[in-house]
Nucleic acid binder design. Structure first.
Lengths: 220, 220
DNA sequence: ATGGCTCTTTGATGCAAATCAAACGATAAT
DNA sequence: ATTATCGTTTGATTTGCATCAAAGAGCCAT
């Protein structure tokens, strides 16, 4: 929540975040076709969102962690168009969207906040399109790791160590590559001494090298 | 604009759409780094939006036509993160975002409308991610053509004929493939009698066949 | 018309990633 | 402990698309 509210305001704002829901690992918070009523703010845990075709192909559209908002896809049609799956036991705040809209009209700061969240998601997806459309396998994985660790660092975790919450297959689905290719890219980075990998544990030994792979120009 | 307003309201709402701007073919409406002040509603003409990396790779993130809104990317940072280029002479309504937000607080219907526009963009990008991550070249082109013609049809144009406003290279950039591959896919469809192509003119002869290519399951 | 653009098509070749396949490691169940 | 299961790694092979290359088509300016 953004700053700049007095205590009376805060009380009102707290209401939209009043009810919570626990989601067990592997369970869906919502799924394609569900009626949309609420946005969800992740309190703890880790989610993936994915869309799928009738013939069973699945595309992971994002990985979300504490503090991030999911469910925005449901606004346009009043129905969700993707699945949100907990990759570990999680807890979310349920924010009934009608309340969000009501309070947004009352509090310009909240309104602005909501708009920024949606815009941020649009911009994020733009850069995923760049990833999928223009980058090679290793560039994609480098970008993915840097993005993950940066978001974790912003939450107080290490900027060089992380434990992946998702499988190689899920990473591959997000990055538009097969699990074997993901695995090979991990091994390559490991061989080159850029990272240390042990299953889902990853330590970044040479962040600059990763950045250089992701974008050869920026870091000389 | 959504229905359901009285004339007094409409007058106010008209204000946010009061000023217009012409954009010549090839010119940019806004570009990466520009300060964000306004959304733009396309009145006439055709745009592409694209992001690019420092090393010059470009990804077209969308093609927009009359009635569609561009500029949403700028909200989150107050600066645009992509370029909007007119693919033909165009005219847009400038909608200062501060006004949009002010009036959204006053008119719930407008507020809802703005939210839906942003959500629609998120959902669209989700399906582009599916396209880029999971589909083969011909599936992508089939999906692209079907999407384009559907949007044109919704605007009163033919559901079987269209004139492309973008080059093979731009189509390729959007779909994550090279211009030669785009050209080959066009030729293949043409050889199979699914479409008729003459440069940028395309006539869809067998929409069902296109749908089947896009999604083998749905149409038996 | 003519030459000089740009865009498009088509062919030949190369390569990055997919696919196929098998072994390995970690975890959970008996 | 032993087996089964799932996720991961690694190797061999195939393939779809990229790349390289050149010719053709449309368009503009002179």
């Amino acid at each position: 929540m953004p700053a700049g509210f007095n205590t009376a305001d805060m009380k009102k704002l707290d209401e939209i975040v009043a009810t919570r829901r626990r989601v067990k690992q592997g369970d869906m918070l919502f799924s394609n076709g569900d009626v949309f009523t609420s946005l969800y703010a992740i309190r703890t845990g880790f989610f993936k969102t994915c869309v799928s075709t009738e013939d069973g192909r699945e595309q992971v559209t994002g990985f979300q962690m504490a503090g991030e908002i999911i469910g925005l896809d449901g606004i346009v049609t009043d129905h969700h168009s993707c699945n949100a799956v907990a990759l570990e036991d999680a807890e979310v705040c349920i924010m009934p969207f009608a309340n969000v809209e009501d309070l947004s009209r009352e509090f310009p700061l909240l309104q602005r906040h909501v708009h920024k969240i949606m815009s941020r998601e649009i911009v994020r997806e733009n850069s995923v399109m760049m990833l999928l459309g223009n980058m090679r396998a290793e560039e994609r994985l480098a970008a993915f790791l840097l993005n993950l660790v940066q978001r974790l660092h912003a939450r107080g975790f290490s900027q060089s160590e992380l434990t992946l919450r998702m499988s190689r297959e899920e990473i591959g689905s997000y990055l538009g590559m097969k699990l074997e290719t993901v695995s090979r890219a991990f091994s390559k980075f490991s061989d080159e001494g850029i990272i240390e990998v042990k299953q889902r544990y990853v330590r970044i030994l040479n962040a600059d090298a990763l950045k250089k792979i992701f974008n050869p120009e920026t870091c000389n």
